[in-house]
């Protein structure tokens, strides 16, 4: 891990020193050691703060859209899952690829601090790895755990890291009865504090004006009478990203309440794959997304009613 971190930093240094880009988007060392935030580096000298390790889960591509007005070229470091978001932003004209120096970097999975904490591993100082084991040096001594036990949810289905099927959990949810699903989501979604972090971090949520900023959106009541506002908020969010979500996992990663938002996003992706053919984001042109196109043979919505399972 150290090696890869050093090479990434070296690459960053070369880009800034050679003037290939005016600035570089990367991650900055966080004092806690496990929550490295995205940062802009304007010169090689600033790279002292630069870090690339197992805690750089954040997706930098959305920040490119914010830097669109900046003078000169911006270099950006993209992990495999971030590239999909990057491609989508280019396709939707949120990023001008001419203005971007894109650097694809390797990633062997990012660690989910919550999962580590749940294992009782706290006071982390450094993580090294050997094979599929992580060696964590903490204030309370050395700890070990298998890396797949503590990776971010999205990494568990990333082909570069694991061979698990991303849609297994969705399939299991579908098997449950309708009432069970209702109870599950009621419990999960009612913990949402409407911090909007999932929206703000989502690379496909780039509208300048958003329904959730409208005080009359019906999702921002402090004392809601029942569960409707939560359902409403999450349906709107997932539907807005429907057909565009690249399953980058940012929403799930940033949610302070640990709501499994990926189960909603992946449900849409699974439906699209099954009904309208594999949702390949790689080669889709603009205007050819799942919801911005159609075919004469598309199924009638009645197929949902014909699904097996009770209520």
């Amino acid at each position: 891990m150290h090696n890869s971190s050093c090479t990434v930093k070296e690459t960053a240094r070369k880009i800034l020193e050679s003037g290939q880009a005016e600035r570089l988007l990367g991650w900055e060392q966080d004092s806690s050691g496990y929550n490295h935030a995205p940062a802009v580096f304007k010169s090689a000298g600033e790279l002292d703060r630069f870090i690339y390790d197992r805690f750089c889960g954040s997706n930098l591509s959305k920040l490119l859209a914010r830097l669109r007005e900046a003078e000169g070229r911006t270099a950006v470091l993209l992990k495999a899952c971030d590239r999909e978001s990057f491609n989508l932003l280019v396709r939707e004209h949120r990023i001008d690829p001419e203005q971007v120096h894109r650097v694809d970097i390797e990633c062997s999975g990012m660690v989910d601090i919550e999962k580590l904490r749940n294992k009782g591993i706290k006071g982390i100082r450094e993580i090294t790895e050997s094979g599929d084991e992580l060696h964590i040096s903490t204030l309370y001594g050395e700890k070990r755990c298998r890396s797949e036990e503590v990776l971010l949810e999205k990494c568990l289905s990333c082909p570069a890291v694991s061979s698990a099927d991303a849609f297994d959990a969705v399939g299991q949810m579908e098997e449950r009865s309708s009432l069970e699903r209702y109870e599950f989501w009621k419990e999960a979604l009612s913990t949402c504090i409407r911090c909007n972090a999932c929206r703000n971090s989502c690379p496909v949520c780039t509208c300048e004006q958003c329904i959730f900023d409208n005080p009359r959106s019906g999702t921002a009541g402090k004392a809601s009478a029942d569960f409707f506002e939560d359902q409403h908020f999450h349906l709107v969010r997932v539907f807005h990203a429907a057909g565009r979500c690249t399953d980058c996992g940012e929403c799930t990663r940033v949610c302070p309440q640990g709501i499994p938002l990926y189960l909603l996003n992946r449900k849409v992706i699974k439906d699209i794959n099954e009904l309208y053919g594999e949702l390949s984001l790689e080669d889709k042109e603009l205007g050819k997304g799942a919801l911005t196109s159609f075919s004469f043979q598309d199924a009638h919505p009645d197929i949902i009613r014909k699904r097996t399972g009770d209520q």
Binding site: R181, L235, K267, A290, A299
Partner: peptide
């Protein structure tokens, strides 16, 4: 047709 298929499916998934 597409939009409503996906919406109905999502409502079903949420247990409605």
């Amino acid at each position: 047709r597409r939009r409503m298929t996906l919406l109905f499916s999502m409502l079903d998934y949420l247990g409605i």
